[in-house]
Design a protein around this nucleic acid. Structure first.
Lengths: 244, 244
DNA sequence: CGGGACCTTGATTATCTTCAATGCTAGTGG
DNA sequence: CCACTAGCATTGAAGATAATCAAGGTCCCG
């Protein structure tokens, strides 16, 4: 049955399918439904604005390949990347209802890399597709959960800890989507993007990465990062308490 | 009709009712429904754990009086207050599905002050109660929105900006719930709690507050804070660009 | 009066930003 | 093939911002 998938469909819906299936056990029928209801694919180059306003209910935009991010801009030029989106993720700019009536986007979704997007259809909760809608719900909850973890990261972790912690989160997510292997992952982000996500200056981001490299915790080149010792990288997300 | 409300009911469901009504125009019948379906009130003293695990679906716990917070604890004792809850808010610890099956709470909800809580019933989406369920949905979205804003605050604002920005957000929320007036608001938080929310050390939090006081942006005593000049406080949330 | 929780202070150190260059690499047009 | 450019990574120096350490101080309460 796997052999029957067209190469093309396999090509760009694989991360989405793998991601969904990791949340809930899906049958081939569910994956067929996903492929069938997926909208036309839009191709984007890096740094294009993808979602300006609040997203349409029931028509989540998913990212089939490449990376994107929800970006908040301050008046004076500072910017904060609120969340990163990797293949298989649902794009969500967050919505502000502060003024009551018109929902207003808090952030703008922009591509951080060449990316392909498609509108997906959240399954109606009928019996046959129940596992599928559960998978969508789990994916949404995971996104919320990542926001909470990011607040902790920004509020209480040092630059080194933040960086290690982010790398591990991205690694987990990319493996879930089937886009990374055990030892490393693609990382198309510039140091400036990482800095804007982790609340650091570019210069300090650079020095933090150098330190992690010197410590043998990461090794990177050409859009990829390798983790020579995941256990030690994991330990670097927490403060090392030596002699008490 | 307003005169008919019992004083007791008025006393502890007022912030919730005012908060909901601010999201969607509600009639007396909707408020009656809220009062009628509200569970028994639980009284808590400061620093009690209120919600340990993931919250039950469809039975949101609301806070009728007092303050609470979703708190994340790190192994080494550092802690981050991820979100603050004021009267009328729905408590939500955030849920982690990372390991697939069992939802796991990311944070623990604790009282930051003496507080009274009750379980509320999210209205079924029948026609008569539609405005009510819309109000609940808006309140939920507002909570998500606050998380996004907090990421920006922690990632890109200085200590002074963060503090001013938080005060303005709390002021807006408390006014919405009818618990604060135009000039100031109750603030039962210790400096340590504010520090843990804003990602600062207690000492630095203290000095930042002193600075704001010296600048005439805030004045506080005994659990209350007053804003002598909201416009200037608002300006303090952004970097002041003098000569260009 | 003693204790505890909270606020405040000064001194010192660490972390991180800013400013200003300098290199590096890939793409572009001559 | 070679300047030329643009975007990104890197460096050093200087300074601001924030953390840490270690005391005091105040207030309330038993």
């Amino acid at each position: 049955m796997d052999a029957k998938r067209s190469l093309e469909a396999e090509g760009w819906s694989a991360p989405l399918e793998a991601g969904l299936a990791s949340w809930s056990p899906l049958r081939e029928a569910h994956l067929m439904f996903v492929r069938r209801t997926l909208g036309p694919v839009q191709t984007h180059t890096v740094d294009e604005t993808v979602v300006q306003g609040p997203r349409e209910e029931g028509k989540p935009v998913i990212i089939a390949s490449g990376w994107a991010a929800a970006v908040a801009h301050l008046e004076d030029g500072r910017r904060q990347i609120v969340s990163l989106f990797v293949p298989g993720d649902v794009l969500d700019p967050g919505q502000d209802l502060q003024n009551g009536v018109e929902p207003q986007a808090l952030t703008t979704v922009r591509t951080m890399d060449a990316a392909t997007l498609a509108a997906a259809l959240d399954a109606e909760p009928n019996a046959a597709l129940r596992p599928l809608s559960q998978a969508w719900a789990s994916a949404r909850r995971d996104a919320q959960c990542r926001l909470v973890r990011h607040v902790v990261r920004l509020g209480r972790l040092s630059a080194h800890e933040r960086t290690a912690d982010l790398f591990l989160e991205l690694h987990r997510r990319l493996r879930r989507a089937g886009v990374a292997d055990e030892r490393g992952m693609p990382l198309p982000l510039t140091q400036e993007m990482m800095a804007d996500h982790l609340g650091l200056s570019v210069v300090h981001m650079n020095r933090t990465l150098q330190q992690l490299r010197r410590d043998g915790l990461i090794a990177n080149r050409a859009g990829h990062v390798v983790f020579p010792d995941i256990a030690r990288l994991s330990a670097a997300t927490r403060r090392t308490e030596s002699a008490g």
